[in-house]
Structures are given as C-alpha cells and as structure tokens.
C-alpha cells in the first residue's frame, strides 16, 4: 500500500485537488494538522500512532481552508465523521477525496508514547480499522491484539449507580466546566453556523459557569449529538477541564444501536436518526 505522502503528492501534481489536509510531525510522539498545497509540501505529511486529530472538522462550511476540491487524510473513525457530514448535507461526496488510512489505534494524548496501555479508549471498541469509504487507501498502522475497553467498563459502573449518585457524579464533572466551548469547536459534527449557546435573544443557556448553565450546556450538547456523534472523542481530548464527555456520547450511541439499530456515519445515503420519523418507531417510552 502506498504511503499518505505519495498519494497526496500525486493528487496535487495531477491537480485533482487544491490542497491535502493531513498530519505533519510536531516533535516526539506528536503530530498536528497540516495543509499541503504543493507536491513539495506533501512530503511533510505523515501518519502514525499520534495522528489524533479528526481532520473532518476542516471540511465543514465555516472551516474549509481552500475553495474547490480537497483531499483529507482520515482514519476509520474520521471517515465516519465525513459520512455523517454527508448524511446531513454539510459536505458533498464529490467535493472531497478521502485518503483513508488503515489504523490499528492511536495514543490517548499528544506526547504520550504508544503502547497497548496508552491506547485511546475509543480504539478498544473500534470496528473501522480499515475505513469503509475512501478514494485512496494508504498504509497506516497495524492492528494489535484486543485493547482493554476502559470506557465500556466505566459506563457499566455508572449505569449501576443509583440515579442520585449518578447525578452527583455528573454534577461534580460539570462543575469544572469553564465554558470555553473547546468541545464544540473541535467537533466535526458541531457544524451549526450559530450555536444555541451563543444566542442571547432569548438566552437559552446561561453563559456563566453556574451549575445551571453548565448542566444546560453539557446536556444540550449531548442531546444534540445523540445519533450523530461518531465517537472520535476529540471533545474530551480538547477539554481543558478533563470532563469525560466520551462517556455521555458513547452511552447515547449505545442507546441508538440498541433501541434503533443505528450506527451514525456508516452510510452517506442513509437518513439521519433524529431527522427521520417512522411509524414503527418505539413509542412506549413516551409516558
């Protein structure tokens, strides 16, 4: 399989795309997003266990750095975000050349050396080591044996708690929120031109980090991601207050699967879960 840089170089040389959004090395055990506009710049593109960013975020309307066709380097999870954006008419399939990469897991944070123990929790339950939609497939990293599913265990523990203790857990977590909205900004699926949290006439959500405002913000965001979040966990990685947002998002994704047999971001032609009404939808949860 060719490497990312070779594919990118070829696409830029042939003028198929105006730019390739990928990863460049940025010190030991680190990469960062990099936009290559020339074949020469494409030499800097890499892919490894530290390619953490979900670059689909650069494809949304308000972020796209270059007019015209672009290519994007995407792991299996990132491709799901691209598909979700296509499902929601935010990205057109023909406007993006997907350079899929095989990915056997990434490290949990920038600067952390890769090992089975330091693998990002999301990689433990990943079923998309080879992206299921791409235009070119590049050599990435190899799958390793089963990874410990730490977030799955944590969700089970939380589910086992009585409601008031579970509430106390989240109250404690949300109390640290400083409302920087980094979670929203790094999220490829938070593609709204104007977020409900930024509206002030009327003001739906308190802007100061009171417990009322923090609950409202974090729960509204979780609800808005239900059936849409593809589990890249960039929100959790970006959070300066270390709020375990992935637990909320994964729980909602699990519910979407169990109750509606729905996995977000797997088929560009599929209707969205919350955007579709079906007469056979469950009704029994409506009191």
């Amino acid at each position: 399989m060719p490497e990312v840089a070779a594919i990118a170089k070829d696409l830029l040389e042939r003028g198929v795309v105006k730019a390739v959004i990928g990863y460049a090395a940025a010190g030991p055990n680190r990469t960062r997003p990099f936009i290559a506009r020339t074949a020469e710049q494409a030499n800097a593109l890499v892919f490894n266990r530290h390619a953490l960013n979900n670059l689909a975020v650069f494809l949304t309307r308000r972020r796209k750095p270059v007019a015209g066709p672009v290519a994007v380097v995407a792991k299996g999870c990132d491709v799901r975000a691209l598909i979700m954006l296509m499902q929601e008419q935010q990205v057109r399939r023909e406007d993006v050349h997907i350079i899929g990469v095989t990915c056997g897991g990434v490290a949990s944070s920038m600067g952390t050396p890769w090992s089975v123990e330091t693998a990002a929790p999301k990689c433990a339950h990943c079923r998309f080591h080879t992206p299921h939609l791409y235009d070119s497939l590049a050599e990435g990293t190899e799958e390793v044996g089963p990874l410990p599913d730490r977030s799955g265990e944590r969700i089970k523990e939380l589910e086992a708690l009585p409601p008031d203790e579970r509430f106390a857990f989240w109250a404690e977590q949300f109390s640290r929120c400083i409302r920087c909205y980094a979670c929203r900004e790094v999220c490829p699926i938070c593609s709204c031109e104007q977020c409900v949290a930024d509206k002030n006439q009327p003001q739906w959500i308190d802007r100061s980090p009171t417990s009322r405002g923090n609950f409202a913000w974090n729960l509204v965001r979780a609800f808005h991601l239900a059936g849409r979040c593809i589990g890249c966990n960039e929100c959790e990685r970006a959070c300066p207050a270390d709020i375990p947002l992935s637990l909320l998002n994964r729980k909602l994704a699990m519910t979407a699967l169990e109750e509606f047999h729905y996995i977000a971001g797997t088929d560009p032609a599929a209707p969205t879960l919350v955007g579709t009404y079906d007469k056979t939808d469950r009704q029994d949860y409506i009191a």
Partner: peptide, 11 residues
Amino acid sequence: ETCLGCGQCAF
C-alpha cells in the same frame, strides 16, 4: 491556519 478558534489558549 489550522486554528479552530476554540479559545482554550485564552482561558
């Protein structure tokens, strides 16, 4: 050019 405007830096 890859800045996402999240404001983490300022906070």
